[in-house]
Design a protein around this nucleic acid. Structure first.
Lengths: 338, 338
DNA sequence: GTGAAAGCGCTAACAC
DNA sequence: GTGTTAGCGCTTTCAC
């Protein structure tokens, strides 16, 4: 049978309230005698007392638990984010319940329901819907923090990469080498990170007076999409001299297609990708890329969320953290510019 | 203010118990009239009633929650396992609390404490200690299921890869090509997966009458370890013609060292690795490897655990699932055998 | 310095 | 068919 305050109370002869106070470190506050404190602590240790956070949560209306909605835990990028969030939460005494939404809005909604039922103190979400409506509604009952992805106009707080700037930088890396025909292979068109990256790409081209040259294709953050679009691109008459892949998965597809076509990176075609990953240094050549500050995103999101829980106010901070250029060997001058 | 059974009870005029029964789908069982049912359901929907699983858990002594202890969520291999576990649990109506133990036994113990306090119905663990003692003790109060790693002699149930067989198969792939000097670069020596893989390697050599040729080095599942050991191995006088890396990370270090030394894979030296990962197909050459049935491991572990929770008996199943050979292009005949 | 008791939201045994 | 009530384990107000 489980130990409770009652059993300890009975065995030590002190009242439940006294036991509770001692076990919560409130002995001082209530000026409970040293002797009592020690007796109770000893007994608690002896019987391996494990306080019920269920009962405590029910009483206190706080569970020290956060909910985390992630579109795909097995995706290394999301795993990194989840990892950062879980660790940061733990360092503040919070535990995290994770729901894998599998990029499905229904799963997301159901996940939110379970979390609310479990009375989480706050929710961190990488949202997968097209609109913030539902999450905004949830935010009225429990604080919500968006991570990685956000929405066009929303009052919800978020922490993500400055994807626009990432798009600009990636494109500039190529422009500086003299590339003019740069194919941008995108992921899910309506998603915010995608739109911002594309916008960055377009603006960089525009500033270079190359707006006419924009080539935007693709529709999914997948290897298949990267492969298909690259196949098409290199087969066409006016082959691009460089490819900007908007994600790791797209990049892999692109690399596969390029290799199959017999072209060499970077001699025949340059490549820049988004997202960091240790493996990218082991491809030949190593891939030049725009890394996202994953660790910082997770940490910051949790800190802001916990703060808003503590202060009992809704957080309104919307943060875009700067991406990181990781220059390797997949970019060279275009042939035509030689 | 939050809605509860009481508020609904008051507003509809029915007793709390009636409301409870209806909302739990027990209307039939208690032969509650259609009208009552509809009124109550309507009101619950209207006010967006969210049942408190805290209160329910307190009352029922079941929370429909599992605890998951993972040594490093950001490691793609563990992320895959976590993903499978989370999804399988969800499909049975369970939510998962994840603790990242960071390969630290203290964190593991603390993680267990929080989980027990939160009254999880069961715990899935990739343990990081050297002995099963503590987990066996925990198993007396709540069912524990080991995953990926196990212990030499333990009564705890587990589901993992047949690492011994993996070690044998990897080694045989090399032996069949005529390799005789095969360096095995291991990870943490005392860990079960490592020991079993090494044992498989040794037995495969023995069966080929090559026990004298065994070369076992290394001490960590890390890129650095793989790099260092490979550097030493290729620099030595009697260079191995093949390397068996006991993990992905070790492999990457090995590849780096081999490239730096100017040797080519597989012409100068063959390579076989453990663990699957999509990126391995994009290295040049693509790496031949032994994949672990991660999805199945996670699924099976959760199923067995839930079953033992349901039946209220301790599971004693200890399962080793067969690994998968993934043959690519990193193995060739050794030079000397030509 | 310590204790008694109410109540958090829920289920289920028992009553009618 | 529906209602009353005890109790899950905890915190906290009020009392002494």
């Amino acid at each position: 049978m489980k130990e409770t305050l009652v059993t300890i109370s009975k065995r030590t002869g002190f009242a439940i309230s006294t036991v509770s106070r001692v076990l919560n470190g409130q002995a001082e506050k209530y000026r409970i005698s040293r002797k009592t404190v020690e007796l109770i602590l000893a007994e608690a240790r002896r019987c391996d007392y494990t306080p019920s956070l269920l009962a405590k949560g029910l009483r206190m209306k706080r569970t020290n638990t956060l909910g985390l909605l992630i579109p795909q835990v097995s995706n290394p990028y999301f795993a990194d984010i989840a990892s950062a969030i879980i660790r940061e939460a733990r360092s503040h005494g919070y535990t995290v319940m994770v729901v894998d939404t599998m990029e499905n809005e229904e799963n997301e909604q159901e996940g939110i329901r379970t979390m609310l039922s479990r009375r989480v103190d706050g929710i961190v979400a990488v949202p997968c819907g097209r609109t913030p409506d539902h999450l905004e509604k949830v935010n009225r009952s429990v604080p919500v923090m968006l991570v990685d992805r956000s929405f066009e106009r929303t009052s919800l707080p978020y922490v993500c990469t400055d994807n626009y700037r990432g798009g600009v930088e990636a494109t500039r890396i190529l422009l500086q080498r003299g590339h003019r025909r740069i194919a941008c292979i995108q992921g899910v068109p309506h998603s915010m990170p995608n739109r911002r990256r594309v916008q960055g790409y377009l603006d960089a081209l525009r500033q270079a007076g190359l707006q006419e040259e924009a080539i935007i294709t693709g529709d999914a953050f997948s290897l298949e999409n990267g492969y298909r679009q690259t196949k098409l691109a290199v087969a066409g008459p006016d082959r691009p001299t460089a490819i900007f892949a908007l994600s790791n998965t797209i990049l892999l597809g692109a690399v596969k297609a390029i290799r199959e076509s017999g072209l060499r990176i970077p001699e025949d075609i340059s490549v820049v990708s988004f997202d960091d990953n240790p493996y990218l240094d082991f491809l030949v050549p190593a891939i030049t890329r725009i890394g996202q500050p994953v660790e910082e995103i997770g940490k910051t999101a949790v800190r802001l969320l916990l703060e808003s829980i503590r202060e009992e106010v809704r957080c309104r901070t919307q943060l875009q953290l700067p991406p990181e250029r990781i220059v390797r060997d997949s970019v060279a001058n275009p042939r035509t510019a030689k």
